[in-house]
Amino acid sequence: MLQLILFSTLNGVLYGMLLFMMASGLTLIFSMMGVLNFAHASFYMIGAYFGFEISRRIGFWPGFIIAPLLVGVVGALIERYGLRRVHKFGHVAELLFTFGLAFVIEELVNMFWGKLPVDYQVPPSLDFVAFTLFDTTYPAYRMFMLATAIAMFAFLIIVLKRTRVGLIIQAALTHPNMVAMLGHDVPTVFMMVFGVGAALAGLAGVIAGPALVTQPSMAALLGPILFVVIVVGGLGSLGGAFAASLLIGLVQTFAVAINGSLVDLIGPTANTIFGELGNVTLAQIAPLLPYLMLVLVLIFKPTGLFGNRET
């Protein structure tokens, strides 16, 4: 049991940090530009594929550096030549643009790398067992993922709190019009934020690619969960995104570990009240819990857990 709790916690935190690497960029983009970027998880996927392509040619470590930068450039270009054009048509058009973009990116990935998972391998330097506990091994690569995510989090905090750019971004989060009036080049800031957000998602993809499977559906699998994270955490709140990422990571992981159903909880009466649903175990509905949280949070606190703005 202890073993289960320990490993579930580790896995939950890791999954949560991975979510946060993407959610942080998404929430920044949303709060500054008002765009719910449906293609954000696609940048994560592109990151994984770029990482794979570079790692099989040059090596994992060059890919670790270059791939996120490339994804950032791709993101910035998309903002500059696509999104900015659509900006004048309003937020719905922008959102739909990213919706179509996600579609196109998935198809392009299908075309270039095929529909089957690609063989993106853990680098040999990290391919060992980090520790063994109750005879379950924990791979070093997962520790590396965790470390990267924490480093990125620290980096983000420092940039936002200690640099001038960070100040502008923070100001733009809450008072976008005021910032523009102060004479800052808001379009360029937008482009940079979009690029950096894409690069962060790309970084998440590069490190998640070898651990999870690199395949064309990886974006579609994570996309909606990201929205849950940033909405539950509170739109525009980085701290909220962090808390919600960890919360959802842990909830999903622990729900899987628990085999209880309503019948187990309150006895056979559950069947008379809920019918078949009485027999459904918590593990079965684990991936649903985030959406349930989303709906409940929005009903009772539309600003999200830590946010203070609705749109």
Partner: peptide, 17 residues
């Protein structure tokens, strides 16, 4: 165990079980 179809990104928790 029954897990949701094509929705799981990381099976580590199941393997732990």
């Amino acid at each position: 165990e029954l897990h949701p179809l094509l929705k799981i990104t990381d099976f580590a928790p199941y393997i732990a079980k």
